Simulated scan of single mutants.
Amino acid sequence: MFTGSIVALITPMNYQGNVCRKSLKKLIDYHVYSGTSAIVSVGTTGESATLSHSEHSDVILMTLDLADGRIPIIAGTGANATAEGVLLTKRLTNTGVIGCLTVTPYYNRPTQEGLYQHFKIIAESTDLPQIIYNVPSRTGCDILPKTIARLSKIKNIIGIKEATGDLSRISQIRDLVNKDFILISGDDITALDSMQLGSTGIISVTANIAAREMVTLCILAQQGKFFEARRLNQRLMLLHQTLFCETNPIPVKWAAKYLGLIIEDTLRLPMTPLTKKGQNKMIQAIIKAGLYVKKEY
Protein backbone atom coordinates (compact mmCIF):
# COMPACT_ATOMS: atom_id res chain seq x y z
CA MET A 1 0.00 0.00 0.00
CA PHE A 2 2.95 2.34 0.56
CA THR A 3 5.10 1.03 -2.29
CA GLY A 4 5.14 1.24 -6.06
CA SER A 5 3.30 3.90 -8.04
CA ILE A 6 1.02 5.98 -5.82
CA VAL A 7 -0.80 8.80 -7.60
CA ALA A 8 -1.03 12.31 -6.15
CA LEU A 9 -4.53 12.65 -7.56
CA ILE A 10 -5.83 15.86 -9.10
CA THR A 11 -9.21 17.14 -7.86
CA PRO A 12 -11.43 17.56 -10.93
CA MET A 13 -13.80 20.52 -10.96
CA ASN A 14 -16.63 21.68 -13.23
CA TYR A 15 -17.08 25.10 -14.85
CA GLN A 16 -18.50 26.49 -11.61
CA GLY A 17 -15.43 25.41 -9.66
CA ASN A 18 -17.24 22.65 -7.76
CA VAL A 19 -15.79 19.15 -7.42
CA CYS A 20 -16.89 17.00 -10.36
CA ARG A 21 -17.98 13.60 -9.05
CA LYS A 22 -18.28 12.11 -12.55
CA SER A 23 -14.69 12.98 -13.46
CA LEU A 24 -13.42 11.82 -10.06
CA LYS A 25 -15.09 8.45 -10.61
CA LYS A 26 -13.49 8.16 -14.03
CA LEU A 27 -10.05 8.95 -12.62
CA ILE A 28 -10.39 6.37 -9.87
CA ASP A 29 -11.57 3.72 -12.34
CA TYR A 30 -8.57 4.53 -14.53
CA HIS A 31 -6.15 3.97 -11.66
CA VAL A 32 -7.82 0.75 -10.55
CA TYR A 33 -7.63 -0.52 -14.14
CA SER A 34 -3.98 0.56 -14.48
CA GLY A 35 -2.79 -1.11 -11.28
CA THR A 36 -1.84 2.02 -9.33
CA SER A 37 -0.86 1.01 -5.77
CA ALA A 38 -2.80 3.73 -3.94
CA ILE A 39 -4.32 7.20 -4.30
CA VAL A 40 -3.34 10.28 -2.32
CA SER A 41 -6.50 12.36 -2.08
CA VAL A 42 -6.22 16.13 -1.57
CA GLY A 43 -2.49 16.58 -1.48
CA THR A 44 -0.70 19.50 -3.14
CA THR A 45 -1.64 18.23 -6.61
CA GLY A 46 -5.22 17.87 -5.36
CA GLU A 47 -5.34 21.63 -4.70
CA SER A 48 -5.64 21.35 -0.94
CA ALA A 49 -4.69 25.01 -0.61
CA THR A 50 -7.84 26.24 -2.39
CA LEU A 51 -10.37 23.84 -0.86
CA SER A 52 -12.31 24.91 2.22
CA HIS A 53 -11.94 22.87 5.43
CA SER A 54 -15.25 21.10 4.83
CA GLU A 55 -14.49 20.48 1.15
CA HIS A 56 -11.12 18.98 2.08
CA SER A 57 -12.77 16.23 4.12
CA ASP A 58 -15.67 15.88 1.69
CA VAL A 59 -13.39 15.19 -1.29
CA ILE A 60 -11.47 12.52 0.63
CA LEU A 61 -14.72 10.88 1.71
CA MET A 62 -16.07 11.08 -1.85
CA THR A 63 -12.89 9.43 -3.11
CA LEU A 64 -13.29 6.65 -0.56
CA ASP A 65 -16.92 6.18 -1.60
CA LEU A 66 -16.13 6.03 -5.32
CA ALA A 67 -13.12 3.76 -4.81
CA ASP A 68 -15.41 1.34 -2.95
CA GLY A 69 -12.53 -0.66 -1.53
CA ARG A 70 -10.90 -1.30 -4.91
CA ILE A 71 -7.79 0.79 -4.24
CA PRO A 72 -6.28 2.12 -0.97
CA ILE A 73 -6.78 5.83 -0.21
CA ILE A 74 -4.22 7.97 1.61
CA ALA A 75 -5.58 11.26 2.92
CA GLY A 76 -3.70 14.52 2.50
CA THR A 77 -3.98 16.13 5.92
CA GLY A 78 -1.32 18.83 5.90
CA ALA A 79 -1.82 22.22 7.50
CA ASN A 80 0.37 25.09 8.62
CA ALA A 81 -1.37 25.16 12.01
CA THR A 82 -0.87 22.10 14.19
CA ALA A 83 -4.38 22.31 15.66
CA GLU A 84 -5.86 22.29 12.17
CA GLY A 85 -3.79 19.26 11.22
CA VAL A 86 -5.02 17.45 14.33
CA LEU A 87 -8.64 18.33 13.58
CA LEU A 88 -8.47 17.16 9.98
CA THR A 89 -6.71 13.94 10.96
CA LYS A 90 -9.30 13.17 13.64
CA ARG A 91 -12.13 13.71 11.15
CA LEU A 92 -10.74 10.91 9.01
CA THR A 93 -10.26 8.35 11.77
CA ASN A 94 -12.35 5.21 11.13
CA THR A 95 -13.35 6.38 7.64
CA GLY A 96 -11.38 3.75 5.73
CA VAL A 97 -8.29 5.75 4.74
CA ILE A 98 -5.13 3.69 5.19
CA GLY A 99 -2.99 6.58 6.37
CA CYS A 100 -2.28 10.30 6.18
CA LEU A 101 0.22 12.29 4.14
CA THR A 102 1.08 15.41 6.12
CA VAL A 103 3.07 18.20 4.51
CA THR A 104 5.50 20.33 6.51
CA PRO A 105 3.85 23.57 7.72
CA TYR A 106 4.00 26.16 4.97
CA TYR A 107 4.63 29.90 5.14
CA ASN A 108 5.32 30.17 8.88
CA ARG A 109 8.71 28.40 8.54
CA PRO A 110 9.06 26.63 11.92
CA THR A 111 12.36 25.57 13.44
CA GLN A 112 13.40 21.91 13.45
CA GLU A 113 12.07 21.63 17.02
CA GLY A 114 8.81 23.19 15.86
CA LEU A 115 8.58 20.62 13.08
CA TYR A 116 9.24 17.80 15.51
CA GLN A 117 6.53 18.99 17.89
CA HIS A 118 4.07 19.58 15.02
CA PHE A 119 4.30 16.05 13.64
CA LYS A 120 4.53 14.46 17.09
CA ILE A 121 1.29 16.05 18.28
CA ILE A 122 -0.57 15.14 15.09
CA ALA A 123 0.67 11.54 15.27
CA GLU A 124 -0.35 11.23 18.90
CA SER A 125 -3.88 12.35 18.06
CA THR A 126 -4.61 9.26 15.94
CA ASP A 127 -3.82 5.62 15.30
CA LEU A 128 -3.65 6.23 11.55
CA PRO A 129 -0.21 5.69 9.96
CA GLN A 130 1.47 9.02 9.24
CA ILE A 131 3.75 9.84 6.30
CA ILE A 132 5.65 13.13 6.50
CA TYR A 133 5.80 15.14 3.28
CA ASN A 134 8.87 17.29 2.66
CA VAL A 135 8.68 19.67 -0.30
CA PRO A 136 10.66 22.83 0.54
CA SER A 137 10.18 24.33 -2.94
CA ARG A 138 6.46 24.69 -2.15
CA THR A 139 6.47 25.25 1.62
CA GLY A 140 9.62 27.27 2.31
CA CYS A 141 10.35 24.75 5.03
CA ASP A 142 12.81 21.82 5.00
CA ILE A 143 12.66 19.02 7.55
CA LEU A 144 16.21 17.73 8.00
CA PRO A 145 17.30 14.07 8.26
CA LYS A 146 18.10 14.29 11.99
CA THR A 147 14.58 15.56 12.71
CA ILE A 148 13.11 12.80 10.57
CA ALA A 149 15.15 10.28 12.59
CA ARG A 150 13.67 11.64 15.83
CA LEU A 151 10.15 11.44 14.44
CA SER A 152 10.69 7.90 13.10
CA LYS A 153 10.75 6.68 16.71
CA ILE A 154 7.06 7.61 17.09
CA LYS A 155 5.19 4.37 16.43
CA ASN A 156 2.70 5.54 13.81
CA ILE A 157 5.06 7.84 11.87
CA ILE A 158 5.95 5.21 9.31
CA GLY A 159 7.69 7.08 6.50
CA ILE A 160 8.46 10.18 4.50
CA LYS A 161 7.67 11.45 1.04
CA GLU A 162 10.95 13.12 0.14
CA ALA A 163 10.45 15.68 -2.63
CA THR A 164 13.57 17.82 -2.41
CA GLY A 165 15.00 16.19 -5.54
CA ASP A 166 18.27 15.84 -3.58
CA LEU A 167 19.24 12.18 -3.94
CA SER A 168 21.80 12.43 -1.16
CA ARG A 169 18.89 12.77 1.27
CA ILE A 170 17.92 9.14 0.65
CA SER A 171 21.18 7.72 2.03
CA GLN A 172 21.31 10.36 4.78
CA ILE A 173 17.86 9.41 6.04
CA ARG A 174 18.39 5.67 5.54
CA ASP A 175 21.52 5.80 7.72
CA LEU A 176 19.55 7.34 10.60
CA VAL A 177 16.29 5.36 10.66
CA ASN A 178 15.27 1.74 11.16
CA LYS A 179 15.10 -0.42 8.06
CA ASP A 180 11.29 -0.60 8.19
CA PHE A 181 10.90 3.20 7.94
CA ILE A 182 9.46 3.93 4.49
CA LEU A 183 11.13 6.33 2.07
CA ILE A 184 8.97 7.36 -0.89
CA SER A 185 10.10 9.64 -3.67
CA GLY A 186 8.00 12.72 -4.26
CA ASP A 187 9.83 13.84 -7.41
CA ASP A 188 9.06 12.12 -10.73
CA ILE A 189 12.27 13.32 -12.37
CA THR A 190 14.55 11.64 -9.81
CA ALA A 191 12.19 8.84 -8.73
CA LEU A 192 13.97 6.01 -10.53
CA ASP A 193 17.34 7.01 -9.07
CA SER A 194 15.67 7.31 -5.68
CA MET A 195 14.28 3.79 -5.96
CA GLN A 196 17.69 2.46 -6.91
CA LEU A 197 18.99 4.04 -3.70
CA GLY A 198 16.30 2.44 -1.56
CA SER A 199 12.99 4.29 -1.92
CA THR A 200 9.96 2.00 -2.02
CA GLY A 201 8.19 3.89 -4.78
CA ILE A 202 6.87 7.26 -5.92
CA ILE A 203 3.96 9.50 -5.02
CA SER A 204 3.61 10.73 -8.56
CA VAL A 205 2.15 13.63 -10.53
CA THR A 206 2.98 11.90 -13.83
CA ALA A 207 0.84 8.90 -12.82
CA ASN A 208 -2.29 11.06 -13.21
CA ILE A 209 -1.98 10.71 -16.98
CA ALA A 210 0.53 7.85 -17.42
CA ALA A 211 -0.66 5.45 -14.74
CA ARG A 212 0.23 2.15 -16.40
CA GLU A 213 3.66 3.46 -17.41
CA MET A 214 4.48 4.54 -13.85
CA VAL A 215 3.28 1.19 -12.48
CA THR A 216 5.56 -0.60 -14.94
CA LEU A 217 8.49 1.67 -14.05
CA CYS A 218 8.11 0.83 -10.35
CA ILE A 219 7.74 -2.90 -10.99
CA LEU A 220 10.90 -2.94 -13.09
CA ALA A 221 12.79 -1.07 -10.35
CA GLN A 222 11.50 -3.45 -7.67
CA GLN A 223 12.71 -6.38 -9.77
CA GLY A 224 16.13 -4.79 -10.20
CA LYS A 225 15.63 -4.44 -13.96
CA PHE A 226 17.13 -0.97 -14.09
CA PHE A 227 18.22 -1.10 -17.73
CA GLU A 228 14.61 -1.62 -18.83
CA ALA A 229 13.38 0.87 -16.24
CA ARG A 230 15.77 3.55 -17.49
CA ARG A 231 14.68 3.02 -21.06
CA LEU A 232 11.04 3.57 -20.07
CA ASN A 233 11.95 6.49 -17.82
CA GLN A 234 13.81 8.17 -20.67
CA ARG A 235 10.63 8.04 -22.75
CA LEU A 236 8.75 9.67 -19.86
CA MET A 237 11.42 12.21 -18.90
CA LEU A 238 10.13 15.09 -21.03
CA LEU A 239 6.69 14.45 -19.56
CA HIS A 240 8.05 14.49 -15.99
CA GLN A 241 9.70 17.83 -16.73
CA THR A 242 6.92 19.46 -18.71
CA LEU A 243 4.30 18.74 -16.06
CA PHE A 244 6.10 21.47 -14.12
CA CYS A 245 6.48 23.97 -16.98
CA GLU A 246 3.91 26.00 -15.04
CA THR A 247 2.88 25.60 -11.42
CA ASN A 248 1.54 22.15 -10.53
CA PRO A 249 -1.29 21.15 -11.02
CA ILE A 250 -1.93 23.55 -13.93
CA PRO A 251 -0.24 21.40 -16.62
CA VAL A 252 -1.41 18.01 -15.37
CA LYS A 253 -5.04 19.12 -15.19
CA TRP A 254 -4.88 20.41 -18.76
CA ALA A 255 -3.23 17.17 -19.90
CA ALA A 256 -5.86 15.06 -18.13
CA LYS A 257 -8.61 16.88 -20.02
CA TYR A 258 -6.65 16.64 -23.30
CA LEU A 259 -6.38 12.87 -22.83
CA GLY A 260 -10.06 12.51 -21.96
CA LEU A 261 -9.61 11.60 -18.31
CA ILE A 262 -11.62 14.52 -16.93
CA ILE A 263 -14.37 16.72 -18.37
CA GLU A 264 -12.91 20.14 -17.49
CA ASP A 265 -9.50 21.40 -16.39
CA THR A 266 -10.99 24.08 -14.12
CA LEU A 267 -8.75 25.52 -11.42
CA ARG A 268 -9.49 27.92 -8.60
CA LEU A 269 -7.79 31.30 -8.39
CA PRO A 270 -5.01 32.16 -7.89
CA MET A 271 -4.26 29.19 -10.17
CA THR A 272 -4.89 30.11 -13.81
CA PRO A 273 -5.31 27.99 -16.98
CA LEU A 274 -2.32 26.62 -18.85
CA THR A 275 -0.95 29.12 -21.37
CA LYS A 276 -0.87 28.39 -25.10
CA LYS A 277 2.91 28.01 -24.88
CA GLY A 278 2.48 25.51 -22.06
CA GLN A 279 -0.16 23.61 -24.03
CA ASN A 280 2.19 23.22 -26.99
CA LYS A 281 4.91 21.92 -24.67
CA MET A 282 2.50 19.45 -23.08
CA ILE A 283 1.36 18.10 -26.44
CA GLN A 284 4.96 17.42 -27.48
CA ALA A 285 5.67 15.69 -24.15
CA ILE A 286 2.50 13.58 -24.44
CA ILE A 287 3.46 12.49 -27.96
CA LYS A 288 7.01 11.58 -26.92
CA ALA A 289 5.70 9.58 -23.97
CA GLY A 290 3.45 7.61 -26.33
CA LEU A 291 0.24 8.53 -24.50
CA TYR A 292 -3.14 8.53 -26.18
CA VAL A 293 -6.73 9.51 -25.46
CA LYS A 294 -8.07 7.16 -22.81
CA LYS A 295 -11.11 4.96 -23.33
CA GLU A 296 -14.00 4.99 -20.89
CA TYR A 297 -13.21 3.25 -17.59
Score class of each variant (00 low, 15 high):
Arg138Asn: 06
Ile209Met: 02
Thr93Met: 14
Glu84Trp: 14
Leu183Trp: 00
Ile132Pro: 01
Phe244Val: 10
Gln234Trp: 07
Leu27Lys: 01
Ile202Val: 14
Tyr116Ile: 09
Glu113Gly: 00
Tyr116Asn: 02
Leu192Arg: 04
Ser125Ile: 06
Glu47Gln: 11
Pro249Leu: 03
Glu113Trp: 07
Gly201Arg: 05
Asn134Met: 10
Lys146Val: 07
Glu113Leu: 11
Met282Asn: 03
Asp142Glu: 13
Leu144Gly: 07
Thr11His: 00
Ile209Cys: 00
Ile143Lys: 07
Leu176Met: 13
Gly76Lys: 09
Met62Asn: 12
Tyr107Gln: 07
Leu92Gly: 03
Ile10Thr: 09
Thr242Ser: 14
Ser52Gln: 09
Pro110Glu: 01
Gln223Asp: 15
Leu197Glu: 02
Val135Asp: 04
Val7Thr: 07
Val19Cys: 05
Gly290Leu: 02
Thr216Gly: 02
Lys281Pro: 08
Gln222Val: 12
Leu64Asn: 04
Arg109Val: 13
Leu144Glu: 13
Tyr258Thr: 06
Leu267Arg: 04
Leu291Lys: 01
Pro105Ile: 08
Asp166Pro: 06
Leu269Ala: 07
Leu259Ile: 07
Ser137Trp: 11
Thr247Cys: 10
Ala163Glu: 04
Asn18Met: 12
Val252Ala: 05
Ala123Leu: 06
Leu267Asn: 00
Val59Thr: 08
Gln234Thr: 15
Ile28Asp: 01
Gln234Met: 14
Leu291Ala: 06
Leu267Tyr: 01
Cys218Val: 12
Glu124Ala: 01
Ile283Leu: 14
Ile158Met: 06
Cys20Asn: 14
Lys288Thr: 12
Ile154Gly: 02
Gly198Val: 01
Lys257Cys: 08
Leu243Met: 07
Ala289Ile: 07
Phe119Val: 00
His118Cys: 01
Leu24Asn: 07
Arg109Trp: 08
Ala221Thr: 13
Met271Tyr: 14
Lys295Thr: 13
Tyr258Lys: 11
Asn80Tyr: 15
Gly85Trp: 00
Glu113Tyr: 11
Cys245Thr: 09
Leu239Val: 10
Ile122Ser: 04
Tyr33Arg: 15
Val86Met: 13
Arg212Glu: 13
Glu162Lys: 10
Ile10Cys: 03
Met62Trp: 12
Ala67Val: 13
Glu264Asp: 12
